[in-house]
Every structure is written in C-alpha cells, then in structure tokens.
Amino acid sequence: HMTFVALYDYVASGETDLSFKKGERLQIVNNTEGDWWLAHSLTTGRTGYIPSNYVAPSD
C-alpha cells in the first residue's frame, strides 16, 4: 500500500469518512474512486474515505 501524509486536519462528514489530523500517516487502500480515496490510518487504525487533496505522498 502507498503511504501518504495528511496536509491538513479533516473532520469526517459522514459515517464512511475518516477523520484525521495534519501530519497523520495514512495507507491508501483504494484510490480508484476519483477525489475520495479509501484509506487506513496508521495512527488510529481506523479505515474510511478521505479527500485526496488533503494528503500528499510520504517519502
């Protein structure tokens, strides 16, 4: 899985979304859904959809 880092805080707007904090590391499970990607937080262990423009590839 690709690892990304959150650029901003995001508060989930629905049950399927994943809240995260700036700097949180996320594994992308599925990024074929356009602007919303299914991600797994390496910080909280939770999985949900995130806005793709809130994250950047982590080196």
Score class of each variant (00 low, 15 high):
7 L>F: 03
40 H>M: 14
16 T>E: 12
47 T>L: 08
12 A>M: 04
6 A>N: 01
15 E>K: 12
41 S>D: 04
46 R>C: 09
22 K>G: 03
31 N>C: 14
10 Y>G: 01
49 Y>H: 06
52 S>E: 04
28 I>K: 05
24 E>H: 04
59 D>P: 13
21 K>A: 10
4 F>Q: 04
39 A>T: 02
25 R>H: 12
26 L>T: 00
18 L>D: 01
1 H>T: 11
16 T>C: 15
37 W>D: 01
54 Y>N: 04
38 L>I: 07
32 T>E: 12
16 T>N: 14
49 Y>C: 10
53 N>I: 10
3 T>D: 10
26 L>F: 15
48 G>E: 01
26 L>N: 00
59 D>T: 14
25 R>W: 14
55 V>L: 08
54 Y>Q: 05
29 V>R: 07
42 L>A: 06
16 T>M: 14
14 G>W: 08
12 A>S: 09
28 I>E: 00
55 V>H: 03
53 N>Y: 10
24 E>Q: 03
12 A>C: 05
58 S>K: 08
49 Y>A: 03
20 F>K: 00
30 N>C: 12
43 T>P: 03
54 Y>R: 06
2 M>Q: 15
24 E>M: 01
20 F>L: 08
32 T>N: 09
23 G>R: 02
9 D>C: 04
3 T>W: 14
14 G>S: 14
19 S>H: 04
46 R>E: 10
16 T>P: 05
50 I>M: 02
26 L>G: 00
42 L>R: 04
12 A>P: 05
37 W>G: 00
57 P>Q: 10
19 S>V: 04
34 G>W: 09
57 P>H: 08
44 T>E: 03
54 Y>W: 07
32 T>G: 10
4 F>G: 04
31 N>M: 15
50 I>C: 02
20 F>Q: 00
54 Y>P: 02
32 T>Q: 14
18 L>M: 15
41 S>T: 01
38 L>W: 11
36 W>R: 10
28 I>C: 07
50 I>F: 03
51 P>L: 04
3 T>P: 06
50 I>L: 04
26 L>W: 02
33 E>R: 13
54 Y>K: 06
18 L>Y: 03
51 P>F: 04
11 V>G: 05
38 L>T: 03
33 E>K: 12
39 A>N: 00
47 T>R: 08
59 D>R: 09
7 L>S: 03
32 T>Y: 09
19 S>T: 09
6 A>I: 02
45 G>N: 08
23 G>E: 03
42 L>E: 10
33 E>G: 13
48 G>V: 02
55 V>F: 06
1 H>P: 12
56 A>K: 11
43 T>H: 11
24 E>L: 00
42 L>H: 06
15 E>R: 09
39 A>I: 04
15 E>M: 09
47 T>H: 07
57 P>G: 07
36 W>L: 07
18 L>W: 03
25 R>I: 15
29 V>A: 07
5 V>S: 04
4 F>L: 08
19 S>L: 06
27 Q>V: 15
53 N>W: 15
4 F>M: 12
50 I>R: 00
46 R>M: 13
35 D>L: 11
24 E>G: 01
3 T>E: 14
26 L>Y: 01
13 S>Y: 10
15 E>G: 08
51 P>Y: 04
22 K>I: 07
30 N>K: 09
8 Y>L: 09
41 S>Y: 01
53 N>S: 15
36 W>H: 05
56 A>H: 08
47 T>W: 12
57 P>W: 08
31 N>T: 14
49 Y>I: 07
40 H>A: 09
9 D>V: 01
5 V>I: 14
30 N>Q: 10
45 G>A: 05
47 T>Q: 09
49 Y>S: 04
50 I>T: 01
46 R>I: 07
16 T>R: 13
23 G>D: 05
12 A>G: 11
7 L>P: 03
50 I>N: 00
29 V>H: 15
2 M>H: 13
19 S>M: 06
47 T>A: 06
12 A>F: 02
51 P>I: 02
27 Q>E: 12
14 G>K: 14
22 K>H: 05
40 H>P: 00
14 G>E: 09
13 S>G: 09
53 N>M: 10
29 V>M: 15
10 Y>V: 02
52 S>V: 07
2 M>P: 15
11 V>T: 12
56 A>Q: 12
59 D>I: 13
30 N>H: 09
34 G>L: 11
21 K>M: 10
48 G>A: 04
13 S>Q: 15
19 S>N: 05
6 A>Y: 00
44 T>F: 02
13 S>D: 08
25 R>M: 15
24 E>V: 01
57 P>C: 08
36 W>I: 07
44 T>G: 04
54 Y>H: 09
37 W>N: 01
31 N>Y: 14
58 S>F: 15
45 G>E: 05
6 A>D: 00
1 H>F: 13
58 S>T: 13
56 A>F: 09
27 Q>C: 15
38 L>E: 05
30 N>G: 15
19 S>D: 07
50 I>D: 01
26 L>R: 00
42 L>W: 06
41 S>E: 02
34 G>C: 10
21 K>D: 06
3 T>Q: 10
13 S>V: 15
10 Y>W: 07
10 Y>N: 02
14 G>P: 03
46 R>K: 14
12 A>E: 04
12 A>L: 03
17 D>L: 09
31 N>K: 15
24 E>A: 02
21 K>Y: 07
44 T>S: 12
47 T>K: 08
12 A>K: 05
57 P>E: 09
3 T>K: 06
6 A>H: 00
30 N>I: 09
14 G>N: 13
30 N>F: 09
56 A>N: 06
58 S>A: 14
4 F>E: 01
41 S>M: 02
31 N>W: 14
54 Y>G: 06
46 R>G: 09
4 F>C: 11
15 E>W: 08
10 Y>M: 03
19 S>A: 07
56 A>W: 08
57 P>K: 09
19 S>Y: 03
13 S>K: 14
1 H>A: 13
48 G>N: 01
45 G>C: 09
54 Y>S: 12
2 M>A: 12
27 Q>S: 09
39 A>C: 06
13 S>M: 14
8 Y>C: 12
2 M>N: 12
49 Y>W: 15
28 I>R: 06
11 V>F: 09
2 M>G: 11
36 W>K: 08
29 V>W: 13
25 R>G: 04
53 N>D: 11
46 R>H: 09
2 M>W: 08
53 N>H: 13
